[in-house]
Design a protein around this nucleic acid. Sequence first.
DNA 1: TCAGTTTGTCAACAGTGTTGACAAACTGGC
DNA 2: GCCAGTTTGTCAACACTGTTGACAAACTGA
Lengths: 217, 217
Amino acid sequence: MGRPASLSRASIIAAAALLVREQGVAALTARRLGEALGCDPTAVYRHFATMADLEREVGDRFLRAVDVRPRAGEGWRATTRRICVTLRRVQLRQPRLAALISAAPTRLANEMRITEALLRELARGGCSYTHAAASYHALIELAVGSAAIDAPIAAQPAAVRRRLYGEWRREYAKLPFARFPASVATSDQLYRGSAGDRFEAALDLLLDGIESRCSTR
Amino acid sequence: MGRPASLSRASIIAAAALLVREQGVAALTARRLGEALGCDPTAVYRHFATMADLEREVGDRFLRAVDVRPRAGEGWRATTRRICVTLRRVQLRQPRLAALISAAPTRLANEMRITEALLRELARGGCSYTHAAASYHALIELAVGSAAIDAPIAAQPAAVRRRLYGEWRREYAKLPFARFPASVATSDQLYRGSAGDRFEAALDLLLDGIESRCSTR
DNA sequence: TCAGTTTGTCAACAGTGTTGACAAACTGGC
DNA sequence: GCCAGTTTGTCAACACTGTTGACAAACTGA
């Protein structure tokens, strides 16, 4: 009953995801989306209460790209690590979406799928329920938080990023030694490699801590 | 020379910080700031190139509250932990500021001060330069990332937060067991305690990992 | 005194999300 | 077949946002 819908939640989400993929998350506005859909911008409000609601759905849609199936012969730690690395990489592509998704659990399809996979792997590693939950929260905070932090810089081209990291290192090196001895001494090692490398190093440290409190080691 | 300034960078930052403290970061707009200062909104642009520039300064100003001095008899790990917990708590109060500050190192006064303190404590713990840098990045990603994630919920009153956490736990418990066995089994332990508790647990796991790779343990 | 500079004011532009009135287009009941 | 009711897209408008360029006030150095 009622006027036949030319739009649907699914078609709007698809168009929004395409828009984000092609023009970045800043392009996801009611007016541009209306243009992409060939309809009035406010038509979207017939299917989503607010633009933020739509953004949540688009964010979860991007999480489809996270493959959580353990590979043959892959231990729990390797699988967990891979899921976290992929999760961060996906979140990283869309700065504001990462912040939105992570603000509260969306409890949408893909988020649940990833949660289940991480808890499953932690159980496989011999974590107690309590430790699995704590470890899950720790992994998510690090992976999603890291994405939220690194996203703005990840949006720059690789050459620009490397130049920036170099500049920062030099700035730490040039600090007055009297007040910043540790910074000067360490400056050479700060912001080394890519943000992804630094995240993986952090993840490995965290996984060390998690593993050390598991029963089966 | 020139018309005498009734405004200054410092007075604007102070007014902006007050605005944020009293009405939240969403209130930090050119027009509201102008109203608070008793001047035209665009006068701010004589002292800051963009509103984002001003926000960075306000963000760094909040970091003044982080006390990095080691207390008597406090080991490197305890000091490091305390700095991270405080840093997160300060960042947490102002959602968007956290995101802005963390997007790129501001290299403003207080950020440098905190960096120096963390590197100093890690050195005290016997970390090599390489390990200290990696650990520093890991700690910052976790602390600031966690703040960015938790900030929207932290803005709610405590009672609302507890209710939300309870609702989420129940939602995980009600998932179909066939597809979400681990989530259902762990549901009772998810979102337990406050977000601060969960962060501190994550921090302890990370510190375990960091410590295990230090020379002096 | 007068030119030059700084600094605040004002109007305006191009955006943003969102709302409420309206109309088109369908379905179920008579 | 027609009419009421419902859904759904359109349109104008509101209240915001950051930011710019022209202008004027108020000072300093020559």
